[in-house]
Design a protein around this nucleic acid. Structure first.
Length: 448
RNA sequence: GUGCCUAUAGCUCAGUGGUAGAGCGUCCGCCUGUGGAGCGGAUUACACGAGUCCGAUUCUCGUUAGGCACCCCA
């Protein structure tokens, strides 16, 4: 009887991170974690699966994007989380004793129940920071600042944090005279401006029965943001004087601009962009998106904003919150394209070849010494029996230091230490081996 | 949910109306102690189902899977 062979393969929209990439990926998350903690955020983790009703909040629009699970008999409907913000809102509502402001960061995979395509996976990692329970505009500024510092710490130079405020959109129906319920059409159309351009935005608005005059006014509104931030505020006030909602949004942005400047975010790193809308979500105030200037096509690598009403879904009094999500998978792609990611087949710093059966214990004791000396060390464990064959393995995996310890060395209580990059080999007594290896590794770091 | 494209070995790809080949990889063997190997061997594929045909991996249709774009995007 023939055994059924199961083909090893992934479903659409999922991907593996093999060690050569994952090592770099983890280095990035370590950096991000460091920045988040420096700003006083504490870690949180929540399950990948939540009750379906928690995630949808009864909104049918959301429901169709949610990755649902097949439920166990008798269980309530469950689903995979599609972001980390709604689970945070659940936590905030479920544990009212959490001291406010509650500052948490969270790294976690999220899932989208939609068809995958380029740059759009069904599973990806998000790195979120949020401040729950602060109404202060300084909280918004902290979030922008932490986003800026995160990208800098990752080595990014040429990026732009685009800032807007949803209150401006709230003022638009009155200012441009269209019905309140058509506001979302405008937001949705403008959100695509970057991607599709004005012609397509105009077409889309025309399809939604906006008049030419209204469309012109909307375009004029967005164009106001095309100049420097100070002029933008003045021009907006001129154009929309008398609109209280507009004035409150402008004041918030003005305040934010002042605050982030004090926090050390240079003006070259951000700009007002009145087309930024962040979809239809739950945002109520500031909204941010970040693009890499050299590869804008990759989309936003970091986005968020203020959402003051999200916990209301759980019957709580409104709880103000502001946060941002770093799209690390997209960042990884961007940094790869920019040549900032060097794939490494191994994290191992030193490998001890093992080609002489009489020296196995000698090899092991050297490995033990190196490990005690904080060197990432492995012993060759494969089937190659010759030094040459084992060396080829080490070279293939780009391990920077190779140690050779055979009967000759054992007789002299030494070990050969090869600096692969420099093509130098020195014989060192085993008691100095760890120090010598670190010296070689240290030199390597200096050379970079 | 809609549309377009694709499907040959683990991967990247050739090829043919008379059932297939390479490179890389993997595994095994050989190579006494020094630079990304060498030599020998093994491994494995025409996604599935129907139709046309003497004969289909090849042509047609369907299914499934994958890619891309739209919709949507917290």
């Amino acid at each position: 009887m023939k055994r059924k062979i199961i083909k090893p393969s992934l479903a659409s929209g999922f991907r593996d991170y093999l060690p050569d990439e994952m090592a770099e990926f983890q280095r990035m998350t370590d950096i991000i974690r460091g920045v988040f903690e420096r700003y006083g955020f504490s870690p949180l983790d929540t399950p990948g699966i939540e009750r379906l009703e928690i995630l949808t909040g009864g909104d049918k629009n959301f429901k169709k994007q949610i990755f649902t699970t097949s439920k166990e008999r008798g269980d309530v409907p469950l689903a995979l989380r599609f972001d980390l913000t709604v689970p945070l809102a659940r936590v905030a509502a479920q544990y009212p004793a959490l001291k406010k402001p509650f500052k948490r960061y969270q790294f976690g995979k999220v899932w989208r129940g939609e068809k995958a395509q380029a740059g759009r996976l069904r599973e990806f990692l998000q790195c979120d920071v949020d401040i729950v329970g602060s109404r202060s505009g300084m909280a918004d500024a902290e979030i922008i600042s932490v986003a800026y510092e995160t990208l800098k710490a990752l080595g990014m130079e040429n990026f732009t944090i685009k800032i807007n405020n949803r209150k401006l959109f709230d003022a638009l129906p009155e200012a441009v005279s269209f019905p309140e319920k058509k506001k979302e059409s405008v937001i949705r159309a403008l959100d695509k401006l970057d991607k599709t351009g004005w012609k397509s935005v105009r077409d889309s608005l025309r399809a939604d029965k906006f008049t030419k005059k209204q469309i012109d006014k909307i375009a004029d509104f967005v164009a106001t943001g095309a100049v420097s931030s100070r002029e933008t505020f003045a021009a907006l006030r001129r154009k929309f004087s008398g609109s209280l909602k507009m004035e409150s949004g402008i004041a918030e942005m003005e305040n934010l601009a002042k605050n982030i400047s004090v926090l050390g975010v240079p003006e070259s790193a951000w700009k007002i962009d009145l087309s930024v809308a962040r979809g239809l979500g739950y945002y109520t105030g500031s909204v941010f998106e970040t693009i890499i200037n050299d590869i804008p096509g990759i989309g936003s690598v970091c986005g968020g904003g203020r959402y003051d009403n999200l916990v209301e879904r759980f019957g709580q009094a409104s709880l103000p919150a502001v946060g941002i999500s770093v799209g690390i998978a997209r960042l990884f792609t961007a940094m790869t394209e920019l040549g900032m990611i060097k794939k490494r087949p191994a994290l191992t710093e030193a490998i001890i070849l093992n080609f002489d059966a009489a020296c196995e214990e000698y090899v092991q004791s050297i490995a033990s010494d190196l490990r005690k000396g904080d060197v990432r060390t492995e012993i060759y464990l494969g089937n190659e029996e010759t030094l040459k064959g084992q060396l080829a393995y080490a070279l293939n995996r780009e391990i920077p230091v190779v140690l050779v310890a055979g009967s000759d060395e054992k007789a002299r209580n030494t070990v050969q230490i090869k600096n692969i990059a420099a093509r130098i080999q020195t014989e060192t007594s085993i008691k100095d081996a760890a120090r010598k290896v670190k010296e070689v590794l240290g030199k390597k770091v200096l050379m970079i």
